[in-house]
Design a binder for these strands. Structure first.
Lengths: 123, 123
DNA sequence: TAAATACATGACTATATGATTATGAAAAAG
DNA sequence: CTTTTTCATAATCATATAGTCATGTATTTA
């Protein structure tokens, strides 16, 4: 039998308190911007400096810096300074599992929609 | 060896196109509001009508309806109408696994912060 | 048909946030 | 010390969105 995870805290089956809910929401929200996903995507192959990231994602340096701050506050990236350069890296690669789960569910949904559309066209 | 998931599409290791990135971000963003997490949490125990949901999450009916729309557009809940009542339910319970992953990582991070604080207090 | 019920939607406000521009801060080089 | 390089931040604007209130719509009931 599949274990059912849930929005619970602790072993008592208590529901999440509002503060915890806010923290979870904040982390989801950090993943809810395409530019930040692009940054994470770029970092997947390894540590990168801000200038390199800026060029890779095709944005401006201040914008990338700001997004990196959001990602760091959410605990998604780590910061390492060396001289005048700052290198960012993925704090926990499991974040990509989250993205993959979302991506697979999206694909399933799109396929279901295509199937429904085909069924209607045959009718 | 652990398989590394990633923000990729297809088998060729191509990076995600912008539209796909936007879709993934949209779904994350749908999970990035505490009130919507509360709604999902309430639905975890089973299908519920809008009035019951409104009372459970402690908000107003129009607000809950609006959030339910966002959740439905993101493919997170299903809608079933019966008479004048509308019942919503979780579209895919795996969404709770996502929340659980986030929650566990948050706990790890908080514990690490507490540990670092203790280390500093001993010094 | 008229009234009541349950939900959705439109108008509106307040707030949050993404993007840009200009500027600031810190480290290295000259 | 001055300049350069690299990144962070403040100021600003535009847009998005959560919340509220009022109203619309569809279904059931009297």
């Amino acid at each position: 039998m599949n274990v059912r995870f849930g929005l619970r805290l602790g072993k008592g089956g208590r529901k999440m308190p509002p503060e915890a809910l806010e923290l979870v929401a904040t982390r989801f929200r950090a993943l809810g911007e395409p530019m930040r996903l692009r940054i994470l995507q770029s970092l997947e192959s390894g540590e990168m400096g801000v200038s390199a990231l800026t060029e890779t994602v095709g944005s401006t340096q201040p914008n990338v810096s700001k997004h990196l701050r959001v990602l760091q506050d959410a605990g998604l990236v780590k910061r390492r300074q060396q001289g005048t350069s700052v290198y960012y890296s993925i704090a926990d690669a499991r974040v990509f599992e989250l993205c993959e789960m979302i991506r697979l569910r999206l694909r399933d949904r799109l396929e279901a929609q295509v199937g429904a559309l085909n069924a209607r066209l045959r009718a």
